[in-house]
Each structure stands twice: as structure tokens, then as C-alpha cells.
Amino acid sequence: MKVTVLNNILEANDIIADEIRGILAPNRVLAINMMSSPGAGKTTLLERTIERLKADGVRVGVIEGDIATTRDSDRLRKFDVPIVQINTGSACHLDANMTKSALTNLDCSSIDVLFVENVGNLVCPAEFKIGEDHKVMLLSVTEGDEKPLKYPLMFRESSAMLINKIDLLPYTNFKMDEAKENALRINPRLMILPLSCTTGQGLDAWLNWVKAELAAKRKN
């Protein structure tokens, strides 16, 4: 016997993602899902970002997702901001359920911007909504300019793409124009910001983007 089902496989996740939006809404917390391959510089970017936003009076909270270890959250402790660590065990991405349980350990009334550092991976994190306002992905110049064509969903779903480690450009064969063109083919609305967490070049544009998004969220 054949039975028509037509059930969205990711529905269970999407329902919880909506619940997370509900939890963040009363305090109008801006939630940013940070995604990249391992080693692109997510944690370093967070260090620079927290440092600068804190100086500007923006209250930051962090959910750290890793398969194992607390190394990344240990690096962020010095900033004295609320951090919740999720160890996914074997899962290669954060899902809404893990994020929601992490949120119970955060006081949403005391933060303006929530950064969720996803597990380093260019494929799986893009599939699972976690109640974020924006997906932001980080591509580093040591990874190659063809990445957008290999991992289209992540580039399609992201609001902004940060191209990190531009201080290393002279030592790589990364072509900035091609990377931008490849990414914009898949997502013409993508905001592209080249930067270097080492030299600080380009960080202002990124921080201004975050602050503008926060202001927009507070206005609504």
C-alpha cells in the first residue's frame, strides 16, 4: 500500500527555530549565526568583534559550538561576556534544539547581539535554522576562490560573507574578483566584506554592519 506523506523533513527543527525567535524577540536580541570551514578564523573574528563592540557599549553574548573541547570559549573568557558552550559530540552542525537549550543558560535581557559560532563546516550548518536574524559566513583567502560554487547553499543563505586573512593575499593564488563574482552569482544580495583579523584592516566595515543591523532590529 502506498501512503502519501508530504512531510517536511526539517520541520521539527524549523518549529524549534521559530521558538528561539520567540525567546529572543522581547529583548530584540540580534542573533548572528557564524559559519565557516575549520580554521577560517571564526573565533579570532569573535575576539576582535567582542573587543570592539564592548568598547562601544554593545552587550555581546556568545554560544560556542564545537564537536569537542572548550578551547574556543576559553579564548573568549577574557572578555567577560556571557558564553555558553555546546559540544555536539559527533554532529557536524548546530541545530535548533541544541541552540535552544544553550539559550536557557543565557540572560537575554542582558545582551544586544548574540553570536552563535557554528561548527566549522561549509555544508551542514547551512541546512539547520537556529532562529538567527542573519547567517554570516567567513571565507579565508587560504581556502580558494572557487568555494562558492562548491558549497552553493551556504552562500545562497548568508546575508554577509567576510573574506578573512587578506593580509596573506600576496602569498596565495586567491583571486578576490573571482571569489566575489562566484559568490554574487549564487547570491546577488550578499554583502561582501574583505578583512584581516590580524592587521585590523576592514574590521570597521564589519562592525558598522553589525551595529546597523542591531539599530534596524531595535527600530522595528
Binding site: 501512503v3 502519501t4 560554487l149 546577488p188 544580495r189
Partner: peptide
Amino acid sequence: FEFICPNCASKDVDVVEGMELAVKEIEIE
């Protein structure tokens, strides 16, 4: 993955199919 309208060359394109992920049907005994 080229999101460009062949008619008017606009890049302002929504995805209407290609994001599905569903159980469509099962066969049971």
C-alpha cells in the same frame, strides 16, 4: 547556480523550487 533571469538579466531572483526536503510517500505492508 546562476541566479540571473534569462529574460531581463535581473539578479533579483527568488528560489521557487530546489529547496524541498520532504518525505513524499511511503510504501507499507
